[in-house]
Design a protein around this nucleic acid. Structure first.
Lengths: 206, 206
DNA sequence: TTTGTGCAGTCTGTAGACAGTATTCTTTAT
DNA sequence: ATAAAGAATACTGTCTACAGACTGCACAAA
């Protein structure tokens, strides 16, 4: 997520064991969890690598995200008393702070928390789990892009405004405008993203 | 899936190691995979248990399934040339054969394959993975029910007819009727299921 | 100079063993 | 007789060690 590793980089166990100060069995179980999250891929007898997402992969992540968010919105609208989303206020604050610092990674982090918080409010644990895993993959693809070029502060604060508008719509809007706003937002995020340029598999294990 | 283990049953590692003829590390990794699939749950220092699905869990599985199927149908309808679904023919045949034998577990197995095949035809790998995991959970909850009472052959063959109708609609129907048929089918499956009766945690490890 | 083969180094997959902790049974006290 | 406390047992979490396989390099031959 920090961009320290790039797509396709190998994760060899001995260096990681050395660095983390644990032994191989718990490390291996952790790697398998990351694989099930879709962040690493494993080939037998050749270890783990950071996934190298193709354009199709990115399109899959964003399209599934839109579908899941639409479902979450349906659940939220069906609730008797709509949640207040107060828990999102500090996340919005940290997003704005990161944008002011020009901290792209911080904005991405807060964005993931923001959207995950909304979906979690739907009260559907399986949906939340799937969505969280999907957002991690999205965060990974964004981290790969942050490596190549950083966004301007203007872009970052514009993203904050869009999220603020989405939250405002959720709190005060009617059903159809909420649905429309989410569809718009998901589409916009997909178009705004930088296309996944095929990064060379450069660094090896560290 | 066979019903040999019931909800809440403990899975202790030593007996499994003995039975499978492997050592603990690979067993532990396998258990962690089953946990990530939502079939087992793990509590620290207390090992793994078969998940005991509450009514809310079952409702979550079926509602998420409906949402994912709706998304899959959208993808299928957006394809230039619709797939033939020829791969589903042998699955339908084995479902009918199982129904004729009164083999509930076989029908469930074929049903899972049938639906997974349709979703997989949408060509969305992440959707397919999530859906497959979800169907395994559904299969598990059904296996728990098969323990208590078996369905009659009439019920089983009726289920086959419903699936045949769904497939026919997919092949020849228009967009709106396909969407309607899927929504109907998912709702019907949810209503037809037996409510998850709270089975006592009876057997221990074996 | 280039290509193929062999060897060495390294990593993964697995096995076996040990320490810490939860559970259960037994014993004792009320 | 029941409940609580302690001890014994068994299981989980972790570590070290070993075998098999792949990768990379070097050397030799064409």
């Amino acid at each position: 997520m920090s961009g320290e590793l790039g797509p396709g980089d190998k994760l060899n166990e001995p260096p990681l064991v050395e660095r983390l100060g644990i032994s191989r069995p718990p490390l291996r179980e952790a790697l398998r969890v990351l694989e099930s999250e879709g962040l690493l891929e494993q080939t037998p007898r050749r270890g783990y690598r950071v996934v190298n997402m193709t354009d199709k992969d990115v399109e899959e992540v964003y399209s599934l995200r839109r579908a899941l968010e639409a479902f979450a919105v349906d659940l939220l609208l069906a609730q008797d008393k709509p949640p207040s989303f107060d828990a999102l206020n500090p996340i919005m604050a940290s997003m704005r702070a990161a944008a002011k610092r020009g901290d792209s990674a911080g904005v991405v982090q807060a964005t993931v928390q923001f959207h995950t918080g909304i979906v979690a409010a739907a009260g559907h644990s399986r949906l939340t789990d799937v969505y969280r895993s999907l957002m991690l993959q999205m965060q990974l693809s964004m981290a790969a892009n942050v490596r190549s070029e950083a966004r301007t502060k203007g872009d970052l604060s514009k993203g904050c405004d869009r999220h603020a508008a989405l939250l405002e719509c959720l709190r005060t809007g009617d059903a159809s405008s909420i649905r429309h706003e989410f569809a718009e937002h998901g589409e916009r995020d997909y178009l705004d993203r930088k296309p996944a340029l095929d990064v060379e598999t450069e660094a090896v294990s560290r």
